[in-house]
Nucleic acid binder design. Sequence first.
DNA 1: AATGAATGAGGATTCATTCAT
DNA 2: AATGAATGAATCCTCATTCAT
Lengths: 212, 212, 212, 212
Amino acid sequence: MARSQTPRRKRANGVESRRRILDAAVEIAGERGYEGTSIAAVSARCGLPASSIYWHFKDKDDLIAAVIETGFETWLAAFELPAEETGTPLERVTAMAAGVAERLVDAPDFLRLGLMLALEQRPAEPRGRTVFLRIRATAAQRIAEMIAALFPALGEDAVRSLTVYAMAGADGLFVQRQIHGGTVDLAAMFELHARLLHDAAARMAQEGDERH
Amino acid sequence: MARSQTPRRKRANGVESRRRILDAAVEIAGERGYEGTSIAAVSARCGLPASSIYWHFKDKDDLIAAVIETGFETWLAAFELPAEETGTPLERVTAMAAGVAERLVDAPDFLRLGLMLALEQRPAEPRGRTVFLRIRATAAQRIAEMIAALFPALGEDAVRSLTVYAMAGADGLFVQRQIHGGTVDLAAMFELHARLLHDAAARMAQEGDERH
Amino acid sequence: MARSQTPRRKRANGVESRRRILDAAVEIAGERGYEGTSIAAVSARCGLPASSIYWHFKDKDDLIAAVIETGFETWLAAFELPAEETGTPLERVTAMAAGVAERLVDAPDFLRLGLMLALEQRPAEPRGRTVFLRIRATAAQRIAEMIAALFPALGEDAVRSLTVYAMAGADGLFVQRQIHGGTVDLAAMFELHARLLHDAAARMAQEGDERH
Amino acid sequence: MARSQTPRRKRANGVESRRRILDAAVEIAGERGYEGTSIAAVSARCGLPASSIYWHFKDKDDLIAAVIETGFETWLAAFELPAEETGTPLERVTAMAAGVAERLVDAPDFLRLGLMLALEQRPAEPRGRTVFLRIRATAAQRIAEMIAALFPALGEDAVRSLTVYAMAGADGLFVQRQIHGGTVDLAAMFELHARLLHDAAARMAQEGDERH
DNA sequence: AATGAATGAGGATTCATTCAT
DNA sequence: AATGAATGAATCCTCATTCAT
């Protein structure tokens, strides 16, 4: 009985701790990249001793990978899929782009980290990089399917090119936002991106048609 | 005569050494980013002891900044400006894009480093980041001027948007290339980028015209 | 049971380790001063790796400050206060001086370090210096009170002068001892110091009296 | 002829350079002690490259020793010896003390350095320390002779004690001045010191007399 | 008389990680 | 579930010194 007087708190709570560590880690890693993220810094920011971090994660690599994973999960969870599959192709491409733009505005930490990892080219690739690239690949797959569905006349190569261009635009606009901050109107830029992609797809579809 | 037989143990040659250090540093920093670049690694790759690196550069920060600076200089030097200012706007935009694409293929180290620095958001900003952003800003200025010249009907905002989009596309395509390697046909993608930019500019110019 | 045979490689014991580090540090710093004290040397003398020192102390500055602090504490603890407040002024001053002389003989490391720190005049003052000066200031206060109590006729200025002279004599004799070693009979010299101080105080008190 | 157009300056001038180096070195060493004085810092303060310092001085030890030597020379040079050997013993002791006090006020760098060296107790004694102690020894000799001359009745031991006490007072007051700055009125304190020394000598001389 | 360049040893400090409790 | 203590390897950088010119 005397025991339960000091209530809850400090009653070791794994889930909570794990979350706190991850929260601290995204912030730091999103600011400073993989190497710039020291366990000591994460420990300082989350208030748990470094050794506790090792109770929850095998090693730094594991921690960063988890950051990417859960970061992506929460990012995805925020998406309310438009579901209704109606409207002109332009409308649908634009709607999609608007969704991405919206998500991009306030979840930059995990994405920034991901991009940094993606740019690195070191011999022993961090697992977080692999995870991030896998996620990107499935995203690209999704985009490719959408393009193919909206413009059935497009050949495989055209779809591939457009997909690459679509991803590139998203990455690039994200980078612009990182660099120039609020100055860049992500919503407007993504609307432009959607429009240009749509026009390009439409033209390519037509050209492809004519050729046959 | 007999004297010059042994090359006399490391004849002091500042310029040469500095170059060797910078060469080693771009490679490493381009692969692993700022934090990932250890002075010891640079020392190992260039053959000079770490303390010698500090003769040529005040600090790691100074070294990285110099890497960005000279990296950009050599990058620019490789550009053969088309000079002849003729052709349709589309031709000219495309030519410009082709030039950039070409440069992007084989000078990725310094650019990758620059992008990584740009993405970082640490409290004490590395000087290299500042330098890189300054360079980018003048590049953006150049692009804006070109767009304004080719499409005089465009308003300020339109030029700004198109410039951001142009830079974003370039960054994004560079990132795609880093991630997917040779799979991405930079020349083709930049041609597409140029075309879309041109079409967008043309349409905006027309819309602006009609409004008045 | 079989288990506890090997003392299990360095059983963690914070308090013990901290003490060992401090012990090693006083010795070295007392011999060579602040800059002359390398963490590596301390590590070597106390047997703990350098990195362990940093578990116990934030920095070298922190370590040296702790050396001064605990050095002074143990030094003070060794004083058996005469308690009995009787005897002629001369007897009491002499008793006090004898006590100090005694302490000065065998606790020179921490004091030598303190004096060296006090003499330094570098822009970024080591924290140990501040601590040492604070301690000295309270010691001086104690001396001033004693003088004022024994010679109530003395004015403020006279007390201040005598206090400065008392401290100066102590410092100076300590220095002589450091330089000339056993040759200097600290006990005798401090007895002389006490006598002269007493005479000066007595005369000043008398002069002050006559003036009114 | 064309040669002498750019006049004097930079016309290598050994004496000048040597002086600049020494000036820089006293300042720095007087602030930070032996170990705290880096050749690089001296080089920065005097404007000559580190390698030039090695042209004028064999090594750091040599430089510091030279600092002590020349520091002492200029210090001594400033003394205008009272020469006239008249007056009561008290007057003469006081005059001497006044002279020392005066010199002590504005030449603290070299003395501070000397004291720091004297306090150090490291295995490999810097040559500067030896030099400083030698100088002190001759100074002590001078004092002893003066005391013996003024109080012929004093025995050897008494002279020795008084000499030690005289030096100790000077050192201690110097230290007080270093610590408390202008607050300490060196002139007044040295006058007190002289008076007390004189009284002690007089009494000792009398006691010695009576004993016989 | 002077100096630019170089260099190995050592400086303080931080790193990721482990382990006994 | 958590943590205080420890640790070897690595970090950046400064040190005193040398040497060819």
